[in-house]
Every structure is written in C-alpha cells, then in structure tokens.
C-alpha cells in the first residue's frame, strides 16, 4: 500500500511540474506582450515596467525566479489589475469556487446515488425506464442552457432565490443545483449499473433468503461493491465540476476564480491565467490523488498485493 501511495504521489508531483513548466513557457512565448496597449509607451517606461515584472531577464532566468516564487506560494503580480497580486485575487475567489464545487458534488452524489439505487434494484422495470429517461434528459440539457433558465424561473419570475452574488448560503443553492444536475445523471448511470450487477451476486441472494430487511441489504451488502466504480469516476468528475464552476460563476454572478479566469483570458492577463491554471491543476491533481488512494484502500487487489 505504501509503495502504491508513493508511486501515485510521485506521478502527481511530476505531472504538476510538467504542467507548470508547459504553462509558463506557453504564455511567455505567446505573441503580444502584456503592455501592448493602444498608446505606445516611452521606451524608458516600458523598460522599467518590464524590469518590474522581470520580463527583461533571459527566459531561463525568468523561469528559475518563477519556480522559486512558486515554491514559496507566490504567484506574482497581476499584469492587468495593477494593485493586486495573483495571490490576492485567488484568495478572494477560491473560497467561493470551492464552496460551490463541494456543494454541487455533495448534491450530485445524493441525487445520483438515490436515483441509481432505486433504478438498479429493479433493472428493466417501468420505474427504472422512467428514471433513466429523466437522467438522459438531464445529461442532454447543458449547464449553459439550464442555468439561465433556472435564473429566469426561480429568481426572476418566482423570486425564491437571489439572482447573483455570494453573500449568503442561499446564493449558492441554484448554482449548485445547476452544476449537480448533469453530474448526478452520470452518477445515477454508474450506480445503476453497479447495483444491477451486484444484485445477481450469490451473497446478496443469501442475504435476501436470510430475511434481512432491504435497507440493510442495500447498505451492508450491495453499496460497498456497487459504489466502487463510482470512486474511480470521481477523478474525471472533478474536472467536469471545475469546468462547470467557470460557467456557473458567469451565469449566477459569483465572484469565484472561474470568473477571474475568463476575464483574464479575455484581457490576456498572462500571470493571472497562469496562476489560476496552476491552482486548478493543483486542486485536480490533489483530488485525483485522494481518489486513487481511496481506491487503493477499498480495492483488495491493491491493498493485499502490496502488503505481501
């Protein structure tokens, strides 16, 4: 097990390093500097600005300095928002994005697993067909369509929820639902497959014939096996969720890092784009690592094999 964890950790660390390096060089080699404004700057000022942002040094030196700062957790100044460092902006936005992502994930798991369990207990029944049709429709309606419609119905027409901002927990309800819907459809399909498969296992039949109550059979004998594929799905799900937060923050006007990312991409604020990408990559790799480790703990093939 320890060997497995070390291997995964090493893989994550190398991937992170490669991502950071690629992103750095891509953005430095990109055409057009950050100060290409409409007005030509006097050469002295431009030289001073470049010096302030370390842009006058050779690329390798810039890269070295960048790595040194990154190790200390400093992502440098924002190119376009003069008074802010990238760290300031991320510190302001990350809690919002993380709350949104976590709330959506929990909601997707609760909805998706309930639908999946209910459908998978009687695969092929009318109830199963209905639930799967609903989740297919959920998959097909993209967030960019569902989210504005939700704002229109629940915020504008019914005024049940606030339309924008992130002041109270109430502000997070609609965006989390909008994000959770497509994810819950995926989860429901995976859960349904797992439940349908495990219900044919001999040990489940034994549990039934012993007369155990259904909730207990589901909880003790079916869920642990049926939810294993779900754990490996959580890795890609994080990526889906992250993309979703970018859109949801836009539609629901939440001041998270996804909004900064899009704004920075539109203004070509290279350092901010780079900073947010690094934060995203770090979050995804960490969560994937946790998923891998959880999988290792649950899957006896990995647990036992590495113990020997």
């Amino acid at each position: 097990m320890r060997q497995y964890v070390i291997k995964r950790l090493l893989f994550a660390a190398i991937t992170f390093f490669v991502i950071v390096t690629v992103v750095f060089f891509l953005l430095r080699l990109a055409p057009g500097g950050p100060f290409d404004g409409e007005r030509r700057m006097p050469p002295e000022i431009e030289a001073n600005l470049k010096a302030a942002y370390d842009l006058d040094a050779p690329l390798v030196v810039q890269y070295g300095k960048f790595l040194m700062r990154l190790v200390q957790g400093d992502l440098g100044p924002s190119f376009k928002q003069k008074d802010f460092s990238v760290n300031d902006l991320i510190a302001a936005g990350l809690p919002v994005s993380a709350t949104l992502g976590a709330a959506a994930l929990v909601m997707a798991l609760v909805i998706g697993m309930s639908i999946g369990i209910a459908a998978g207990l009687r695969p092929g029944s009318a109830f199963d067909g209905m639930l799967m049709t609903v989740s297919n429709i959920n998959l097909a309606v993209p967030t960019i369509v569902a989210a504005p419609l939700m704002v229109l119905i629940f915020s504008v027409s019914l005024a049940w929820f606030p339309a924008g901002g992130a002041d109270t927990a109430w502000h997070f309800v609609l965006p989390s639902i909008a994000l959770a819907i497509p994810l819950s459809a995926d989860i429901a399909r995976i859960m349904r497959g797992g439940m349908a498969e495990v219900s044919l296992e001999p040990h489940v039949k034994t549990a039934h014939s012993k007369g155990l109550p259904l909730p207990r059979i589901i909880y003790r004998h079916m869920l642990p096996i049926a939810s294993t594929p779900l754990i490996s799905y959580l890795g890609p799900a994080v990526a889906v969720l992250l993309t979703g937060t970018v859109v949801a923050e836009q539609v629901f006007d939440l001041p998270g890092i996804g909004r900064y990312y899009v704004q920075a991409a539109l203004n070509r604020d290279y350092t901010l784009v780079m900073g947010v990408t690094i934060v995203y990559a770090f979050a995804i790799l960490t969560l994937n690592l946790l998923v891998d480790i959880a999988y290792g703990i649950i899957d006896p093939r990995i647990r036992v094999a590495s113990r020997a």
Binding site: T15, I19, V23, L26, L27, L29, A30, P31, G235, P236, A239, V240, L242, T243, V246, Y261, V262, A265, R268, Y270, V273, T277, Y280, A281, I284, L285, N288
Partner: peptide, 14 residues
Amino acid sequence: CLPGILIVILLVVM
C-alpha cells in the same frame, strides 16, 4: 486529469 476546456481556453489566449 486536466479539464479539456481549460486547455482550449489557454490555447485561445495564446
């Protein structure tokens, strides 16, 4: 493990 859309956005920025 990277979200594809972010990679595309990065390329578009560049």
